[in-house]
């Protein structure tokens, strides 16, 4: 069985992004970029399934400009076998991304598609669900445990109330949550080997998808600043402030 993993290049999670002075967007000039942490977890899960003998090949795909090949190489170094980049010059909307991924899936016929639950830039949490819909396949989002048994997939999901376990027929789409696994580090020899692994570039036209952008970014503002607070010297002072100044406790 083949596993397809969708990965995205995003701002490094340690960077605190700033809004541009003109409010047109956030400032990404000279900001450190990385593989979206949830995508890293998705790649790791695919590699583990291959190590368990449940998968034969891991294909990673990213939709973006040439720069995202860096993240595809990272995924190859972590253990993916080959990569596909779908070339887009501007940023298409979420539905277009899902359509492009669906076309890649149609061509490659994976038994399982893994995505992150959320990209940490847009904080959208929607691509996997949309892809599953377009592929007309079942979905298990926010996965913290994945098990394959023949044609059956069992997934435990992190839901607001606790944990939920679902049984799905493959092919299926799974999105990863933080506790699914702890990604390994790529070793130097694997980083070297990744440079020689195949990376194919396709255009949206090759895939027969028209790029659209139905969501226009009007402006971006910094969040409301919190006014500077005070340090209290003791628990007694804290309780007094909460009772008599902030009036938030009785």
């Amino acid at each position: 069985m083949k596993i397809l993993v969708a990965v995205k290049r995003v701002i490094d999670y340690n960077v605190k992004v700033r809004v541009k002075a003109d409010g047109s967007d956030v400032d990404l000039a000279n900001v450190k970029m990385a593989l979206n942490p949830f995508c890293e977890i998705a790649v790791e899960e695919a590699v583990r399934l291959k190590e368990q003998g449940k998968a034969s090949e891991i294909v990673v795909v990213s939709i973006g400009q040439k720069t995202c090949e860096e993240q595809l190489r990272t995924a190859l170094a972590l253990g993916a076998d080959r990569a596909i980049r779908v070339e887009v010059d501007s940023t298409p909307d979420a539905l277009t991304i899902a359509r492009l991924l669906a076309k890649v899936a149609e061509e490659d016929q994976p038994g399982l598609v893994l995505l992150g639950k959320q990209s940490i830039d847009s904080d959208n949490n929607q691509t996997g669900q949309m892809l599953a819909a377009l592929m007309k396949r079942p979905q298990a989002t926010f996965a913290s445990e994945v098990q394959i048994d023949g044609d059956t997939l069992t997934v435990t999901r992190e839901v607001d109330g606790g944990l939920q376990t679902l049984t799905l027929s493959l092919p299926a789409v799974v999105t990863t949550d933080l506790r699914l696994n702890e990604p390994r580090y790529a070793s130097l020899p694997n980083i070297m080997k990744a440079k020689k692994k195949p990376l194919e570039v396709k255009s949206a036209a090759d895939l027969g998808v028209t790029l659209t952008n139905k969501i226009k970014l009007i402006s971006v503002a910094p969040p409301a600043e919190r006014s500077a607070g005070i340090k209290v010297g003791s628990v007694a002072e804290l309780v007094d402030k909460l009772r008599n100044e902030a009036k938030v406790i009785a």
Partner: peptide, 9 residues
């Protein structure tokens, strides 16, 4: 967006 570091319209 961006972990609440920006509010997009």
């Amino acid at each position: 967006i961006y972990a609440g570091n920006a509010i997009a319209t």
